[in-house]
Nucleic acid binder design. Structure first.
Lengths: 228, 228
DNA sequence: CGATTGCTTGACCCCCATCAATCCTCGTGG
DNA sequence: CCACGAGGATTGATGGGGGTCAAGCAATCG
């Protein structure tokens, strides 16, 4: 079993504010898990009773709307925490997390996190700051969803993937999203997403090869995202 | 000048976790302000350098989208804090706050809040919890914006106002929103909002009298919001 | 090699954005 | 006290974006 003290991933989130002693304590009681592609890490309505730390892989975080369609709220990758929000507000999970590829995660029980929140102010402040940033990002998404066209949102999403995810050596985006996933990020029907993707392809903004997506012209995509 | 220790409004937010001594300190350096209807409390991009506490009145919090239209992100009323998010993440304000009616606010400078965040863990935890709840609410809004029709969102908004705002003695909603404001909450054109309002009126779900809105049938509105 | 799942394209139509004209309301000044 | 003007509210007409249904196609898997 690997140790938290030596984990590189931890550097990427609030856990890097923990002291060595705190890390050793947490390392002793954390559990590791491997989630296969397509499997569900946790479900809307579940009480998670802890926090997940993503060691490797990508995971989609979705919420079911009243009309029965899934909406992807965010993508979560190596180094991100998952479940902190529900833990802090002491609510059931408001979202479902599903692995997009094979996922390695660590699970830290609630009591341990709560203990550190109470005694380590740096940790608490760092968590507070992370939530504050998430909240701004959520505000931005609200505006986009409310005001932008599907085309603009697709352009924005492609840009986001381009800027935040690694590429394979041939230049394709490393994350493999289904057409359904893409549609469910931008909040539209799968067919609409597909049609817009092909139109972007015709305009040589992107290239499509199976599930591989190549971003050819980020500048132009940015202009589209902002409304020409 | 009124004192924070005796302020009832404070009971409604995280500030009620402050100790008596802390309150006295804050009381000494806070300032009060009156903002007239329609005036701007702060603007997107400003560094607020503090937190506002709403003593009385209602305020809309908006963000301008790339296409130039305002989107109302939330309504803020008596007892709510404003500006905590930007303060915590140490960013410029991502939103603009505009008074919907005459507004009484107190302003607490950043350093005072930061000092308390560092030394009073209960206060920090309470703030953390508030942000966590806001984040869940934002997630819900994202899903609604992405998946629901304008009609559903209007029904939901009317319900929200019905459940969270007081009524005048004749039963009308106390907040006076222009048609533009309503449109900008649900993220649509003013004309669309107006048309849907009249259709709701025809179906006797609501009554309209000038800017007064009477909610007649919340149950039916709820069904509409959920998609029949 | 069927069969299931995902991708793509076509056809259709409704919701909603936009433009335009009119009406209403209210504050201001003559 | 009324006339007038300006901004908000309302209604009509119109066109396009995008949701939905359906059918054909590609790919993956037992």
């Amino acid at each position: 079993m690997s140790k938290c003290e030596q984990c590189i991933v931890r550097q990427l989130n609030s856990l890097n504010e923990l002291t060595k002693d705190e890390l050793i304590r947490i390392s002793a009681c954390k559990t590791s898990k491997v989630i296969k592609k397509g499997e569900i890490l946790f479900n809307e309505g579940e009480y998670i009773n802890g926090v997940f730390c993503i060691k490797d892989g990508v995971c989609k975080v979705t919420k079911m709307s009243d009309n029965g369609r899934d909406q992807i709220i965010k993508l979560v990758k190596k180094g991100d925490l998952l479940g902190e929000r529900s833990l802090i507000s002491e609510e059931a999970a408001n979202l479902r997390a599903t692995a997009l590829n094979d996922l390695e995660v660590c699970f830290i029980p609630k009591e341990e996190i709560v203990k550190d929140l109470k005694q380590n102010n740096n940790f608490t402040m760092s968590m507070l700051k992370e939530l504050a940033v998430s909240l701004r990002e959520a505000d931005d998404v609200i505006v986009d969803m409310a005001q932008k066209t599907v085309k603009q949102r697709l352009a924005e999403t492609l840009l986001y993937l381009h800027n935040n995810y690694t590429k394979t050596e041939n230049g394709a985006l490393e994350i493999q999203l289904s057409r359904d996933d893409i549609a469910s990020i931008i909040g539209t029907a799968t067919e609409s997403a597909i049609r817009l993707l092909s139109s972007f392809k015709k305009d040589e903004l992107i290239k499509l090869k199976g599930k591989d997506i190549f971003i050819l012209n980020p500048e132009k995509l940015k202009k589209i995202a902002e409304g020409f």
